[in-house]
């Protein structure tokens, strides 16, 4: 089976085990540019592992992952890291902002990792912080802002490099519904405006409702609901 035509990121027959625990057992996935795909499923079903594999954080035991025509599974760690720095963005549930750095420094971090100067990185960071309505927090440290604000800072950080794929793992998991929805609105709006694809891992239907379609992961196998029908 070849990846669906036009897909930006696609995976076939992914298998991944952590010791005796089988996390993925033949999962499939594909996403087009500008598409928001929710990955749903009960906890422990392998959603996060699927995301980690797709993002090149964890190499799968077997199977193929193609990003923009390139095979990800065979890439060296350094090349995958470089890809993550320049083409991908990440938002996690919590524990992702560096507590010592100010918010604007946190947002600027990926740009600086790519070699941008501090000034230009922080200027770009501020633009994104404005779009996510957190530019007022630039001098604050993550410990001094609320959960929703912190998560918006994290979204700004994920988008600052202009990624083509944004990976979000339970981005609203630690937020109340109002804050969660606001973060989702900002996230999807921002992603759509840059034509970035979003892989959204969530177990919440109301968060998944911000997606264009969903795939369900159960016992390490995925089911693409659109293609199934």
């Amino acid at each position: 089976m070849t990846p669906p035509p036009g897909s930006l990121l696609a995976a076939e027959n992914l298998r991944k085990a952590y010791g005796p625990t089988v996390a993925l057992d033949g999962a499939e996935f594909s996403i087009h540019p500008g598409e928001v795909v929710a990955v749903m499923g009960p906890s422990g079903s392998g959603k996060s592992t699927l995301l980690h594999c797709l993002a090149g954080i964890v190499p799968p035991d077997s199977g193929s992952i193609t990003y923009d025509g390139r095979e990800l599974a065979g890439m060296s760690d350094a090349r995958r890291s470089a890809l993550r720095r320049s083409e991908f963005g990440f938002v996690f549930q919590f524990g992702q902002l560096v507590p010592e750095l100010t918010c604007v420094e946190n947002v600027a971090l990926p740009l600086r990792l790519n070699g941008a100067s501090r000034k230009e990185a922080e200027r770009a960071a501020l633009t994104w912080m404005e779009r996510l309505e957190v530019d007022g927090l630039k001098g604050k440290r993550p410990g001094e802002v609320s959960g929703g604000q912190g998560q918006r800072v994290a979204v700004a950080r994920a988008l600052v490099t202009g990624p083509r794929v944004l990976f979000a793992d339970e981005p609203t998991g630690a937020l109340d519904s109002l804050n969660g929805e606001r973060v989702m609105e900002l996230l999807t709006d921002a992603a759509r405006s840059t034509n970035a694809a979003v892989v959204l891992v969530t177990h919440e239907a109301r968060v998944a409702a911000y997606s264009d379609r969903e795939i369900v992961v159960r016992d390490g196998r995925s089911r693409d609901m659109e293609r199934a029908i």
Partner: peptide, 16 residues
């Protein structure tokens, strides 16, 4: 550990 892992996720070099 969680912070370190997420830093690595968005592509921070181990050297850094």
């Amino acid at each position: 550990r969680k912070l370190l892992s997420s830093l690595v996720a968005f592509g921070t070099r181990r050297r850094t």
